[in-house]
Simulated scan of single mutants.
Amino acid sequence: MALPKIPLSCSPKVNQVLECPLVDAVATNLLAPVKTEQQILENSMLEDDPNANCAVAEPQEAVTGPRWGPQHRGAQELANLYSRGKRIQECICVAICLTLMVVNLVFILFHIKMERLSIILAAAFFGIVTADFCSGFVHWAADSWGSVELPIIGKNFLRPFREHHIDPTSITRHDFIETNGDNFMVTIPFLSRMVWDFLVLSEDEVQRKFAWNSYVFLLAIFVAMTNQIHKWSHTYFGLPTWVVFLQEHHVILPRRHHRIHHVAPHETYFCITTGWLNWPLEKLRFWSGLEILIEALTGYKPRADDLKWAGKRK
């Protein structure tokens, strides 16, 4: 059913949604008009109003159930699939990852030379960019392909992506472990290899690999923090001032910028560390090109499982 059109200045609540920093407004509306303001209002959940499901009332909502949010039947079913075993895995991964981060940081500080500071800064920049791309690739793959019914990866790793689209604010109700457990897990092999290098290599060999290990370490930190940054992009109340500052200056993923991804059917702006790569990848039609190729080769349509869960409204 087509949704009714409304003027963009119809209420203070809608006006508040449309407010954003100048830089983000330019990036959203001039450089990359991926979604119009009307599409954002009609086809995404109004996250900054805890009592609202959408900025536009849907006449059939009382009959069909809410389109998004914690009262959505599909979201409730997916949330109930979070298991004790998954929780244990996340706790172990967070503990191991944090330990490895501290150990590697000690080794880096012990071996660092001030004349290599420029290398560290370059490694930090490329680590951020790589983490942003990796976040986009994993996000795109998990959003677009596979099913919650798949053995092992379905309930453990794809389930949160399905839940997040139909209840975007669910991530704000997750604690540190549930939010970050999987991202911390991904970094463990790389951080472990770094510890091994520091332990077994000679000083000359450590210095030869120092730039690479600095890049890997900073990449691991950004990857580990990606879902925390993602959580902040959905948090409209009570954020620390420094987080809001970083968002407004697009050092990390801004709330307004990420909302473009949450316009159904969630087919763009997948990068969620900084979001820096979203505009160029969209202009290159990177994700849509991959989807066309995969569908041509396999016959599978992207986001079929995602749409199935979104349809379980009542």
Rank of each mutant, 00 (worst) to 15 (best):
Q89K: 04
N80R: 09
A75M: 09
P66S: 03
L81M: 10
G69P: 13
R84S: 11
H72D: 12
L81Y: 14
Y82C: 12
R73F: 08
S83Q: 02
R87D: 10
C91T: 02
G85I: 09
G74L: 11
G74D: 07
N80E: 13
Q71R: 10
C97Y: 13
R67F: 10
K86W: 08
R84H: 13
Q71I: 02
S83D: 04
G85Y: 00
G85M: 15
L81W: 11
C91P: 06
W68D: 00
I92K: 08
G74Y: 02
I96D: 04
G65D: 00
G85P: 14
R73D: 04
I96N: 05
S83Y: 08
R84L: 14
L78N: 08
Q71T: 06
I96R: 08
L78T: 05
I92P: 03
R87T: 14
P66N: 01
L81K: 13
H72C: 09
A79L: 06
G65C: 07
L81N: 08
C97G: 04
C93K: 14
N80P: 06
R87H: 14
I92E: 14
H72F: 06
Q71A: 03
Y82W: 11
V94L: 05
I88G: 11
R84G: 10
G65F: 02
R73E: 15
Q89V: 06
Q89L: 13
C91K: 00
R67I: 11
R84D: 13
Q71G: 02
I96M: 04
G69W: 03
K86E: 15
R84K: 06
G65Q: 12
A95C: 14
A75R: 11
Q89Y: 13
P70H: 15
Y82G: 01
Q71Y: 01
R87A: 14
E90P: 07
I88W: 14
